[in-house]
Every structure is written in structure tokens, then in C-alpha cells.
Design a protein around this nucleic acid. Sequence first.
DNA 1: GCCATAATTAAACGTACGTTCTATTAATTA
DNA 2: TAATTAATAGAACGTACGTTTAATTATGGC
Lengths: 198, 198
Amino acid sequence: MARTAGSDGEKTEAAIRAAALRLMARHGFEAVSMRQLAAEVGVQAAALYRYFPTKEDLLYTLMRAHMEGLIASWEAARPASGNAAAQLSAFVENHIRFHVARRHSTHVSNMELRSLSHERLTHILRLRGAYEKELRQILRSGADAGTFHIEDTALTAMAIIQMITGVIVWFRPGERLSVEEVADTYHTMTLRLVGAPA
Amino acid sequence: MARTAGSDGEKTEAAIRAAALRLMARHGFEAVSMRQLAAEVGVQAAALYRYFPTKEDLLYTLMRAHMEGLIASWEAARPASGNAAAQLSAFVENHIRFHVARRHSTHVSNMELRSLSHERLTHILRLRGAYEKELRQILRSGADAGTFHIEDTALTAMAIIQMITGVIVWFRPGERLSVEEVADTYHTMTLRLVGAPA
DNA sequence: GCCATAATTAAACGTACGTTCTATTAATTA
DNA sequence: TAATTAATAGAACGTACGTTTAATTATGGC
């Protein structure tokens, strides 16, 4: 056999991406073979190479899409003006909503950095750094205005990011709490964490 | 060649453990081959099988040691009495000190759970659950006493654990901040997070 | 209906993997 | 010093990996 009836490049590529995220989130990048991925898509392994030149290219594409999506999401959600507390609330809410809606992608992006080449790792880390800088700026502006009480901006930013990213480790949609409730509680905790008045 | 001059089982096993933690923390469990590990130890791959029957056994041994060490460390550090705030401070400080002192072990224990068999995964998660329960009890007692203001105990416990475990992602000893300063700042942030009075 | 091209299969390549087997040497005990 | 045991080396086994090559079939424009 060769080309199959109804085959379509765009659909196949999308199916590969989705299957890769699903499998890699569960088993890890190294543990997922190209044959296993192809089987999940319903295709032969060689067909994957029409869309991604190497396995690492596939990983890099997925990670870049995740980070660029996160940054774009924040740019769309960021309040045009408003005080630091409002900006921080928007940041926390956007972060949690984005990650909960993309569990697989988040797991892959957080766990598989070490499988990237140095060059590509650097690029992904640059994107991540730009995103985290947004949070540091919010914290600094709140501290300057006297709204927040912060000992160390960089350290507090890392603490907040780790706290709110960690949601996806335990959160399961459809269980005890809804995304809204979770986001709301984290938002409250974050504001207390930075010493903002209730 | 066969047995080498000065070879000693205890030393070799300790060397294997240390090398495994170092390599697996950097490259991940799946990416480290038994031959690579053996080379790091200065031994042939077959020699590893005298100490660990399979690669997964090695991982399990390392993870169990990490979790049991963490629990033992907390049991030794836990204040015999004292209010919830003091207990929480001790918990945060112990957690950060323990993990910073065991960077490699922590990375492996946090990242490689999916490489364990179901049975062994369950056992490690049980240990982790027991440890986290300690924190939830502290939070609950503080909330009951009116010292803490907590919306959701389980959620707050996860948020705190993720925040303080995340230290090892960015902390590098010998740089800008000392472990003492980091632990101190996290301790302050944690108390604010649970609404404890300054 | 023909032709260019897009999409895919089937088979193969070389390599590396986890693990096992057997032989060999060092240390320990008697 | 002889016998026993502990610790390792070296080679091999079967399997699975990422990737490449060549052939084959479906699709869409004329």
C-alpha cells in the first residue's frame, strides 16, 4: 500500500501533534518510540518524517507552540491599565486557565527540556524568561506603589510561578473543585503571599 | 580481567547510587544506559547487576531512600510541641534544607515516577502521601486555633509543597542567596500565604 | 482521462539497549 | 598454603530504536 484513501497532510500533522503530547505527557519523551507514536496515529513510522525531520524537532515544535501560546494568551488577557493587584490577579487566572486547559502540553514543556539540544533549549528558556519577566514587573510595580510587601522580587516570582503551575499536578477537571474555584483560591493565596491588603 | 585490586562491594554500590543520581538527574532515567552508568562508576555494565537486579530496581531503591530520608528528617526536626506557626516554620525549613542538600535525588524522585511499575509507584506515592498529611494536619490545627485563615486545606497544602519544592529548580548554592536566606524568605511567604499574623 | 504531486507503505540499515552467561582474579578463611 | 567466596570482566543474545530509501497509491487541476 501507499497513499491511503482520504489522507490529508494537515489532519495527519494535527493528529501527530495531539498523539505526541498525549503519549509524551504520560510516558515521557524518551520512552515514546516513533513506532508507538505512529501506531497511535494509525500510520507507519516513516510517515512521521514527512512532517518532522527528527524526533527532537517534533518535541521542539510542541514546546515552542506551548510557550508562544502562553505568551499570546497573557498578552490578550493583560489589563490595559489597572493597579498591580488587578494585574497580578489577571496573571494568576490566565496562567491557571491556560495550563489546566493544556495538561499534556504543560507536562511535556515542563519535563522534557533536557531532551532539547543546547541551542533549542536556549530558545525555549528565553521565551520562558520573557514570560516570567512580566510577573516580576507586576511585583515590582506593586512594591513601588506600596501595595505589595516583597522581600525579593525574583524569588517571589519563582515561588508564585511554581505554586500556580503545580495546579496541574493534582487538579482533575470534574472532581471536587471547578477551575473557577481553584483559580479563585489561588488568586486569594497569591495576594496574601505578596502582602496585599485583603 | 576479573576482580580488580581493591574492589569492595559496599564502595561500589555507593558509587553506583551516587553516579545514578547524578546522571539520571541530568539526563533522565530513560536516557541513561546501564553502560553509561557503569562507565561513570569505572566498571563494566554486568557488574551493576550484582547490586541491582534490574534498572528499575535501581530507580526504586533510590526513590525509596529519598522519601524515607525525607520522612525521617521531618520526624527528627518536628517540634515536640508549639503552635501551628512554629510547626509550619519547621516544616518549611526542613523541607527546603533537605531538598537543597539533595538536588539530584530530588530531581529523580520528582521526575521519574512514571518509570516505576504500578506496584512500586503506589508504594512511593503512599510515602509521599504520608508526608503531605503532616502538612495538612499543621494547617488544620492552625485553622482550628484561629491562627491561620485557610480556604481549602488540601489545596493550600499542595500549593505550599509545590512552592517550597520548586526552590531546587532555580536555587544554586554559592550564588546570590544562601540557604538560610532562601529558607527564611520562603518561611515568611508561607506564613503570609496561610494568613498568619506577622 | 491524464498527469503532476501529495501522502503513505514496506523493508531495510546500523546502532544501542537491558540483561545473561561464563570465565577469571582478588580477598578471606581455615 | 590451600580452599572458598566475593567482585568483576568480556562476550554474547535478542530486541527495539531512530531514521532512510524506494516503491506505490490517492488526489486535484487541466
